[in-house]
Amino acid sequence: MKLVFTVCLLTVIYQSSHLAKSSKSEGKSIKFSYLQILREKRLVNEKRIARYNDIVGVSSSNVIGYSNGNDSFISNEDNYLYGIYMGIKWQCVEYARRWTFLRKSSIFESVNGANDMWNQLKYIENVVEKKKYPLKKHSNGHRNRPINESYLIYPIQKDMPYGHVAIIVDVLTNSIRVAEQNFYFHYWKGNYSREIPILFKNGLYYIEDKYQVYGWIEINDNKQLKPLDKLTIETIEKKNKFFLNSASYYQKSNFIFFTLFIYNLMLFQYLHL
């Protein structure tokens, strides 16, 4: 009798153990399947081409990247932010200027293309104080590591008829991360669009992109420049309002002057008939 009871007990324990393992295995399988679905969905999303005007990502807390649809399209639509010109939607230079405006409360002068930034730009200018902050160029293959919050500049080359500019938003041990527009047209997987390797060779740092790189331009502000804030926006809007009122007054004055001129001319002709 004891033997039968022992056999039954062992059978129950074995079956319970088997069911527990099976349940655990099924749980792992379900979890794995769920993670696999998420991973595949993310990969599909990263490869999916974003339509023109779609938001592809956000870098540096608040700088939105938009899709240009494809790299040959030029919208010829100007983009203004608080009355200040940013550039043509959604070109790479527009993103660089808007990033500078939002993160440094400054802008740089107009350029024909990103390629011209390397030789033409000497400073950025604070939009309120009008103080100029110098820019420092570092050619690719420099003794200093790439610097965060710098402009990465590409020359004119195949697939880049105007060159290209990206913003370095993170510097890692062996790579940099950049944010940009009008390069790739997929949705970003994080707060950056691409990660590019860095090579340290013979005491020099090289950004190892598949395209030729001029180098990076450092903003030499000694961390004085701050992101655009509410007070700065209010100051800009007050200035815009003043200029609009001045322009309106000027237009009205011109209209009155022109009307008086015509009236006096007609009066003169009438008196000399």
Rank of each mutant, 00 (worst) to 15 (best):
T11R: 08
T11Y: 13
S17Y: 09
H18K: 14
H18Q: 11
H18W: 12
K28F: 09
S29P: 01
S29F: 09
K31D: 10
K41A: 14
V44K: 15
D54R: 00
G57H: 02
I64K: 14
I64T: 13
D71T: 08
S72M: 12
F73P: 02
S75R: 08
N76K: 14
N76C: 05
M86A: 07
Q91W: 01
A96G: 08
A96L: 07
R98L: 12
L102G: 03
R103H: 03
K104Q: 05
W118N: 03
V127N: 02
Y133G: 12
P134R: 04
K136G: 00
S139D: 07
R143M: 13
R145S: 13
E149I: 00
E149V: 02
Y151P: 02
L152M: 10
L152W: 06
L152T: 09
I153W: 05
P155W: 07
P155D: 08
K158R: 10
P161V: 10
P161T: 11
G163W: 04
G163D: 02
H164S: 09
V165M: 01
A166P: 00
V171D: 10
L172M: 11
L172A: 13
N174V: 04
N174Q: 09
V178M: 06
N182A: 15
F183E: 06
F185I: 14
G190F: 00
Y192H: 13
L204T: 06
L204H: 09
Y205N: 09
I207E: 00
I207L: 04
K210I: 08
Y211F: 15
V213P: 01
V213S: 02
I217L: 04
N222W: 03
Q224R: 12
Q224C: 05
D229F: 07
L231P: 00
I233E: 01
I236K: 07
I236N: 06
K238D: 04
F242W: 10
F243N: 13
S253A: 13
F255Q: 13
F257E: 14
T259L: 15
F261G: 01
M266S: 11
L267G: 03
F268E: 08
H272N: 14
L273V: 07
